[in-house]
Design a protein around this nucleic acid. Structure first.
Lengths: 219, 219
DNA sequence: TGTAGTGTTTAGATTCGTCTAAAAAAAATA
DNA sequence: TATTTTTTTTAGACGAATCTAAACACTACA
């Protein structure tokens, strides 16, 4: 139905359009796909003919219903494989993207449902991004920055806003990762820093800047 | 270095040449690859220019040292993924080939070494075929028919001689599959049947005919 | 509101893997 | 050995995805 390359275009359009909310320019898509505007024009016309995107010349492009379905299926596979690589094969969360880019194109619905089960139906990938279910539905846990979390409310880290390697290294050092359970014990008004308890044991103070970049959900 | 398609050709040549022992005709390769002789001629010329095969016009083709390396790497990946699908994702051994055909082309040496470790360094795939190591070396376990196994010697099922569905169904029913650990407790001289212990617990008597078709290796 | 500048599309070419049809070489047979 | 049959290769073309260069369409500002 859709080639490897077409799937990648649909995924990119879906991302750049902010989940289908705004149309995507040829140039931005060209940059995302590491190719030329001319190639993008060609491919978008092709996807339009296949009814996978809505497209009018010079007016930008967006995924259609069908295109969104394809994009979500690929995203689901990508994120499930990332969970596999980190949880089962002990990869670090910042080394899995490239491999998942390849694995996401393996065609076998049964494989994916078995993998989902094997991984115990994860709702988030190792970066905290939500994994759509087989119908393309994201689980609707509300994510808030750690700075917004109420005092003494248990929560779980589900994502980060800053994925720079400096920040990820810092999180590693203090023992925070996706899935870490924590609560905020106190806030220090003079600099906005937070006193938190990690996994009901380790006490730690983190800066306001760090806390703004850690997203948590209630548990 | 080598495309998806080139890898498949090298694998097919390696197989048809009986592990590089005899040269492969254009027509047989065309049949194996489900394509035309003309396409094979083109591709073989291309692989020859890349020094992956030894080829002289009208004289057939065979893998070169480099080509054999590529083929063995692909075969290793294919068989490791098959083990993963059967052991971890609970696929039946006759449903994994198609999916492994796709997975075998994922490029990441680290992924494969991690997978190998995760699967506990299997030496055989679910069909009993040996898995080459990272240097392309097959483990040289001696396979013997179960009828030849010494009494009370622990061994592991590595292959079957008869892959008729009747025999496979029988094996399923009695709980014997590739990888099953067993030993022979006693032989019954009057009909050649064997009393065996499966996985150090289940006792079972099997006919001489069945035992001749089960290949085991010492462990 | 006309025009310079930016963004986008079209035209034409290239590489990869494939095809059909035809030519050439090897093998089989008389 | 000469001729027929089979196998293999070559020639030329095609679709997919890409590219560069050139034409075209929008936009922004003088």
């Amino acid at each position: 139905m859709f080639s490897f390359v077409e799937e990648n275009y649909l995924k990119a359009i879906y991302h750049l359009s902010d989940h289908g909310r705004k149309s995507v320019s040829t140039n931005s898509l060209a940059e995302e796909m590491q190719t030329t505007a001319a190639s993008v024009s060609d491919m978008v016309a092709k996807l339009s003919k296949k009814k996978a995107v809505d497209y009018q010349k010079y007016k930008g492009v967006n995924v259609s219903g069908k295109g969104k379905e394809v994009a979500l299926r690929v995203i689901r596979k990508h994120r499930l494989w990332e969970v596999f690589l980190v949880d089962k094969l002990k990869f670090h969360w910042d080394e899995v993207h490239e491999i998942a880019e390849q694995l996401e194109h393996i065609k076998s619905p049964l494989l994916i449902s078995r993998l989902d089960e094997f991984l115990d139906f994860p709702k988030h990938d190792p970066h905290g991004d939500p994994i759509p279910d087989e119908n393309g539905i994201f689980s609707t846990v509300k994510k808030v920055a750690l700075t917004e979390l109420e005092l003494n409310t248990p929560a779980q880290v589900v994502a980060v806003n800053d994925s720079s390697s400096a920040f990820l290294k810092y999180l590693d050092k203090v023992g925070v990762s996706i899935g870490t359970k924590l609560k905020v014990e106190d806030t220090n008004e003079f600099d906005g820093s937070l006193d938190i308890i990690i996994n009901q044991q380790k006490a730690l103070t983190i800066s306001q800047t760090a806390a703004q970049n850690i997203l948590v959900a209630n548990i």
